[in-house]
Design a protein around this nucleic acid. Structure first.
Length: 442
RNA sequence: GGAGAAGUGGCCGAGUCGGUUGAAGGCGCUCGCCUGCUAAGCGAGUAAGGGGGUAUAAGCCUCCUUCGAGGGUUCGAAUCCCUCCUUCUCCGCCA
């Protein structure tokens, strides 16, 4: 969420940001509402000040009456004054009530509009209205070469009986997959490998948060109100299945004031993630790429504003390290303004090489949200000097999406006979070094 | 699910026959003093959000709101009433 004061004072900056994102919002109307709200507020506050003063006066007079009675003096005159003052003040109260009735819808309307305004892209973000303006920043490794025709992971996996898409659909519906034998173990091995690496080598604190989240949490990270149709909702309980651990982990500190000495806070969480994929009909219909339920290991940082861009680079490197350790070729892409997600000010996508499509596929998205989420979720920190609390900056990224990593390993490590070599770093977790289709009761 | 208790500032914790209580006290923190260093001690300061004025780097003045959330009673509510949420204890149920 942007600060209404910031919008008022930096209208050109906000306008340009919306243009660069190709988002249309009537800022003039919003500021007009804000003007109306503030002038109404002045009216109300003046009256409230008057009412408070009168009430204090009543209090004083009441005490005087008490004293006079004790002394046996006459209180008729002063009692009359009190009654008159009460009548006057009750009238002011009625006026306040009327004005407040006007104020409430204004305030709600402004808040609702503010919640739909996306973040302002950082100046280092390339300007362009769609993904064709994204730019490769760097790449690691080269596309895997085969001396045979490589197969897509869904064919390999079904032959090896490590993925069963039909039974996944039978149990739930399409875009759900049943993992079996070495496939299930590969998923689990990757989760453990990623968590171990991020905790032991990169210094993140491991968490395992709730996978259902309430409305306030989803507003905090920016999924609500705009992306409601992309989430699974438990209607009876007013809870949502999280689309990413970012929601749960960022909200750990909703309404907190963090100590300066504790920053940056670094968390890693493994969670299942759930997405309805509304509007994605026909895209990535085969295989593990686009599922309603998938596992992800997520990195989240809370930082001081002045460090957030450096920390964003480091977090991206932490995610890349997983791909490098797994020996998977990838590239890093900076998203253009038009492709940037709602809450992000800057985002790098990590894209892994997928032989089946002969291209790179997104496997991680590392974003700096600056204070956009912190303002929504009210996450602040107090500088050492003991000054006013300020909003933190939040950063997060996948480290990595597990299902897509499984797909990438199966495709990049396949052999001509359809077996899959297990990357070196996963062997301690897998306890085998080759998936043959007959291992692990598969 | 049933019965009971409780929710106050960064933290702990006072505060009901409603009226200078935005809130005693303590801890923590900041600044200063003291001491060879540290510790202890002494003094002062220290909630957040918002509006207006002035200055515009900070700042200063003033008003409003906020004692779990929302509503009600009242001239006036942390304090009384209602609803909800959360936590704790006991019972039931359960992995």
């Amino acid at each position: 969420m942007l600060d209404i004061k910031f919008i008022r004072q930096n209208l050109d900056v906000v306008k340009k940001a919306l243009d660069d994102r190709d988002v249309k919002i009537d800022l003039a109307a919003l500021l007009d509402l804000d003007d109306k709200r503030r002038s109404l507020l002045i009216d109300i506050e003046d009256r409230r000040a008057q009412r408070n003063a009168n009430s204090q006066e009543v209090g004083k007079l009441m005490r005087t009456i008490g004293r006079l009675k004790k002394e046996g003096e006459d209180t008729a005159k002063i009692t009359g004054d009190v009654a008159e003052l009460k009548r006057l003040t009750a009238n002011i109260g009625n006026e306040i009530e009327l004005l407040e009735k006007k104020l409430r819808p204004l305030t709600e309307k402004i808040k609702a509009q503010l919640l739909t305004i996306p973040n302002i892209p950082n100046e280092s973000v390339p300007i362009g209205l769609d993904e064709s303006f994204n730019q490769e920043v760097r790449h690691w490794g080269e596309p895997t070469k085969f001396d045979f025709e490589p197969q897509p992971h869904w064919d390999l996996g079904e032959k090896l009986k490590i993925f069963d898409f039909e039974r996944g659909a039978k149990i739930a519906r399409s875009r759900f997959t049943l993992y079996l034998g070495a496939g299930a173990r590969l998923e689990r091995a990757l989760i453990n490998f990623m968590l171990d690496t991020h905790t032991d080598e990169h210094g993140y604190k491991e968490t395992f948060p709730p996978i259902l989240a309430n409305e306030a949490s989803l507003i905090g990270t920016g999924q609500l109100p705009k992306m409601a149709e992309d989430m699974f909702r438990c209607q009876d309980d007013d809870l949502y299945l999280i689309p990413t651990a970012e929601v749960s982990v960022t909200n750990i500190h909703r309404d907190d004031i963090l100590a300066a000495a504790d920053l940056p806070l670094k968390y890693v969480a493994y969670t299942p993630c759930f997405r309805r994929e509304a509007g994605a009909h026909g895209r990535d219909t085969r295989g593990l790429i686009r599922q309603h339920q998938f596992n992800k290991v997520e990195l989240v940082k809370f930082t001081r504003p002045e460090n957030s861009y450096a920390e964003h680079e480091l977090l991206t490197r932490d995610a890349e390290d997983i791909l490098q350790k797994l020996g998977l070729p990838y590239r890093v892409v900076i998203l253009a303004t038009g492709d940037l997600s709602f809450a992000a000010a800057k985002c790098y996508d990590l894209e892994v090489w997928m032989p089946s499509s002969g291209g790179y596929k997104e496997i991680s998205s590392c974003s700096n949200f600056e204070d956009f989420q912190a303002r929504r979720a009210n996450i602040r920190w107090r500088p050492e000097a003991g000054g006013k609390p300020r909003f933190v900056h939040t950063i997060n990224g996948s480290g990595l999406a597990v299902g897509r990593t499984v797909a990438a390993i199966v495709e990049n490590y396949q052999q001509a006979d359809g077996t899959i070599i297990i990357p070196e770093v996963l062997r301690p977790y897998m306890k085998i070094d080759l998936i043959t289709g007959s291992d692990l009761q598969s």
